[in-house]
Amino acid sequence: MKRLIFTLIAAGFTTALFAQNNADSVFTTTTTITTTTTAKGTVTDTVIRKKRKLKFSFSTENRDTVYKEASKHPGWSFTPTFSRVDIGFATLVDNGSFTLSPENEFLRYRSWKSSNFGFDLLELGYRFNSSFKIYASAGFDWTRFRLRENVTPLRFQDQLTYSVDDIDYDKNVFSSTYLRLPLSFYWRSKNDNAGHRFHIVAGPIFGLLIDGHVRQKSLENGDQHFRAGFNLAKVRYGGFLRAGYGGIGFFAKYYANDMFEDSPAQKGLKNFSFGATVGF
């Protein structure tokens, strides 16, 4: 998963970088002089040939370049897509605080190793003009927390329950997979002198639980996987924001309902994620 995430980031940022390069066609001239000796004297023929070369350059300076403004007519659209690729950090908010309460201490996680990753695959929208559009989309969203404690969340319990293990786990990951369903209100500016736009997208977001997953790696038990039955919310809802320039920006997603169902000790424990996004 880490390799996939970093590969997608590198591809997205490389594409966005090269999209800002300027390509100029230039011509060079080659002069060929031919001398012919005849009975009447010496004749010199001069032939000038033009060779076309393609020159690539990158500059942040303003240039008097004319770009064709993309114009979109109002109307409906339905299309498959691969966009809004989010890669960032996952965070728990415990009743408004980033510090976990004693009841939730067993979920302490390593911040730099807890991540959120997602993307959209389908889009249905209505464009009002070249700058404003409303669309609903569907995709997938993965959230993973790298737990610090040597605990195991138990499956198929009345409420979220865990066991404290006498094992020093090399890796203890608690993750969830959701089908994500955002409703987006999208605005973009006109092209600037560099031919790029500013983008702002915001709206409500919904999620349908696909799977919960615990992965543990230890010397004693090797690599273990446990799926489903962790009292995760079957439906989640919240809001999101994306903003950026060109094809790169940042995102933030906050889910207003509790992360777990039927678990009084985890009441008020919510999910928040933020990071970089590629593709608007």
Results as ranks from 00 to 15, higher is better:
T99Q: 02
I5T: 02
D64W: 00
T15P: 06
V201Y: 03
D168F: 00
L241Y: 11
R180K: 12
V85Q: 01
S130P: 02
V278W: 06
K267D: 13
G244P: 01
R146H: 12
V235F: 10
P264R: 06
A194Q: 05
S115T: 08
E261G: 07
S184Y: 05
R155K: 11
F119W: 02
L219D: 08
K2C: 07
F226H: 13
T44Q: 00
V93T: 06
K40D: 08
R197K: 10
N21F: 08
L181H: 00
G222K: 04
V26A: 14
I200N: 09
R110Y: 07
G212D: 05
T161P: 06
D211Q: 13
G229I: 10
F272Q: 07
S176M: 01
F27H: 09
R63T: 10
T79S: 15
S263M: 11
N231T: 14
D120C: 06
S77G: 11
Y178E: 01
K40R: 06
S57T: 12
T34V: 02
S97Q: 11
T91C: 06
T14G: 14
G246S: 07
I205D: 04
R242E: 05
R236P: 01
K171Q: 15
S273F: 02
D86T: 07
K113Q: 12
F56H: 14
D223P: 08
M259A: 09
D45A: 04
L209P: 02
